[in-house]
Design a protein around this nucleic acid. Structure first.
Length: 565
RNA sequence: CGGGGCGUAGCGCAGCUUGGUAGCGCGCCUGCCUUGGGCGCAGGAGGUCGUGGGUUCAAAUCCCGCCGCCCCGACCA
């Protein structure tokens, strides 16, 4: 390929509004252009990198025994209504109607479509296990797209779905996919952490996220440097503290706290630390109402609460419910005197005494509240989000909080979708059972951004050879010098013939422009044909690394050596 | 959805506080010059100032609405 006939419009300057390095460099080097918030065009260089990423994913999926399909992006909304996800996703699901008014949506994921496909075809246990995948455009009307390709409303991802006859089969399929993901990420040349995560509201357990550790990432997780345990704060297990003597209970006191509703307002008003407060969070679980108690400086983990209650869906109680069960407006709920409400408390509160809580009356809080004396706890459980410094549940060392870019996510889904969409099979014993599913996603466009985020310097991108848009760029320094031009041409042809993907920089530009653009674009191999050309020698460089002078005939072998390093 | 910022030539920005003449850098076109890190000189083209309304003799500038984009937060199967 020749740059004179290519389309890689590089920019001298990018708006100061663009902050993320990957966003800035992909724009500047001519890989992407924005169309709307969270909507991008991929230019030829962007397509080449994306295809490299996808081919690595494809090879590993195929090697793991998954079969490639191509499902539609356009889904009848009816399918999403069958699983309840049309409602669950709400406005995040992009909706539209066809000409006759039939409701459709643009798929944000493909459990519904794939499950209904399998439901129509698979009859017997003999046809299982099955693992189907696709590389498809997804649409999610994210409330806040950001960071270039990191978080967008339209993106490409590989999603695989496994179908098994039982949970043991699912466990095997899942392990195979996890193994494949390790291989994929290693081939991308990216560091990553495997993080235990939450399956979210609908279905799903044993879920793992593969995170690229990055200061600029938007996911947060806790990781133990000793034993490599890593989990999101919502799911990281917090061991109950060792039992300790509680402070002596003081007489309960009522304090007027006019208009002081938030933890911040109350602590400031009363001059106490948030640790002394206990938050009372009221949840609606079906018909039941429960109150969850955590220390004032902690966050409740809805995942943990959901697990304790064995509830699939959990909803924060609305103002009416709160008024009904506490007798007070939002902001003054407390455990003392709650009626008909189960009280579940975080283990951490067991050793604590004399807390400040809401008073269940408008503008009232209570001091010196004690469990056992002033109210009863029906269940103690690990309810709070873990935090930096908490002990690792594996080895007891201290957990550190990291930020990362979520590259991939695997779930065990179970039978939620197969039951909702009628994907049943006849087992060996003649009984009809729902197929047990797993799902495995990895974003290809996000991967491109993540690699750019990780591999760049002040001059531009530096692609790992496995995903680079070209292997090498050949740069004749002086366009008017016949020796430079003809030697560059020759090397270009020879490298192509040797099976490399080569870009020839044949534009009529000054040397500085060509060097700057080559660095910006970040092709790992650079061959500079300049003043040594008359002796038949050229410079062979690794972008961002070593540079060697070599005779023209040895360019191929020197390049291979440099690219392997 | 809450908070903050921005929208002026193809790109990046100034001008707005204090209303009256729309400016700079890069890019682009022409000519000369130059050729190992975004050359130099000379000449030139190019703008409904996001959009709708209001105030005013007069609006890029002041006021109101809307739209779009960026950042923080909420959110993120």
């Amino acid at each position: 390929m020749r740059t004179s006939h290519y389309f890689a419009p590089t920019l001298r300057q990018v708006s100061g509004e663009v902050e993320l390095a990957s966003h800035r460099l992909l724009l500047q080097a001519g890989y992407i252009r924005q169309v709307a918030a969270g909507v991008y065009s991929l230019l030829p260089l962007g397509v080449r990198v994306t295809r490299k990423v996808e081919n690595i994913i494809r090879e590993e999926m195929d090697a793991a025994g998954a079969l490639e399909c191509f499902l539609p992006a356009l889904h009848p909304l009816e399918l999403w209504e069958k699983t309840g996800r049309a409602e669950y996703w709400g406005p995040e699901l992009m909706r539209l109607k066809d000409r006759s008014g039939r409701p459709f949506c643009l798929g944000g994921t493909h459990e519904e479509v794939i499950t209904s496909l399998v439901a129509g075809e698979v009859r017997s246990y003999r046809e299982l296990p099955l693992n189907l995948y696709q590389i498809q455009t997804k649409f999610r009307d994210d409330p806040r797209p950001r960071g270039g390709l990191i978080r967008v409303r339209e993106f490409i991802m590989k999603d695989a779905y496994s179908f098994d006859r039982d949970v043991a089969g699912l466990d095997r399929s899942y392990d195979i996919m996890v193994e494949a993901y390790h291989k994929i990420l290693q081939r991308m040349g990216l560091p990553y952490h495997v993080v235990e995560a939450s399956g979210g509201g609908i279905g799903g357990w044993d879920t793992k996220e593969f995170e690229l550790p990055s200061e600029t990432g938007e996911s947060r997780y806790l990781r133990c440097e000793k034993c490599e345990y890593a989990a999101t704060p919502e799911v990281a297990e917090v061991k109950p503290p060792a039992p300790a003597e509680r402070a002596e209970a003081l007489p309960i006191e009522r304090v007027e706290t006019p208009e002081k509703r938030t933890i911040e307002q109350v602590t400031e008003f009363l001059g106490v630390s948030p640790r002394r407060l206990v938050k009372t969070l009221v949840y609606q679980v079906g018909e039941k109402v429960v109150a969850a108690l955590v220390r004032g400086d902690r966050d409740l983990s809805e995942d943990k609460l959901r697990a304790v209650l064995e509830a699939r869906v959990l909803e924060m109680a609305g103002p009416e419910t709160i008024a009904r069960v506490t007798g007070a407006p939002v902001g003054f709920a407390g455990p003392v005197g709650l009626k008909g409400v189960e009280i579940i408390a975080d283990e951490e509160l067991r050793n604590e005494a004399n807390f400040v809580t809401g008073g269940n009356e408008a503008d009232l809080h209570l001091r010196n509240v004690n469990w056992g004396r002033d109210f009863e706890v029906s269940r103690w459980a690990d309810l709070r989000c873990a935090a930096e410094g908490d002990p690792c549940p594996g080895c007891g060392a201290s957990l550190r909080e990291l930020r990362g870019v979520e590259l991939a996510h695997v779930f065990k889904l179970g039978t939620f979708y197969s039951e909702a969409l009628g994907a049943y099979f006849l087992d060996e014993d003649g009984t009809r059972k729902p197929i047990v599913m797993g799902c495995y996603g990895i974003g290809s466009t996000r991967m491109v951004a993540a690699i750019a985020e990780h591999y760049h310097d002040e001059n531009g991108l530096i692609w790992p050879p496995s995903v680079a848009p070209f292997d090498v760029i050949v740069i004749p320094v002086n366009h008017d010098d016949e020796v430079h031009r003809s030697l560059a041409e020759r090397i270009y042809e020879e490298l192509k013939a040797a099976g490399l993907e080569v870009l020839l920089e044949d534009r009529v530009e000054r040397p500085g422009v060509k060097f700057k653009d080559a660095d910006l674009i970040g092709i790992p191999g650079q061959v500079v044909v300049g003043r040594l050309a008359k002796e038949g020698k050229v410079e062979v460089r690794r972008r961002g690394g070593e540079s060697r002078v070599a005779p023209a005939e040895e360019v191929g072998s020197v390049l291979r050596e440099l690219l392997a390093s």
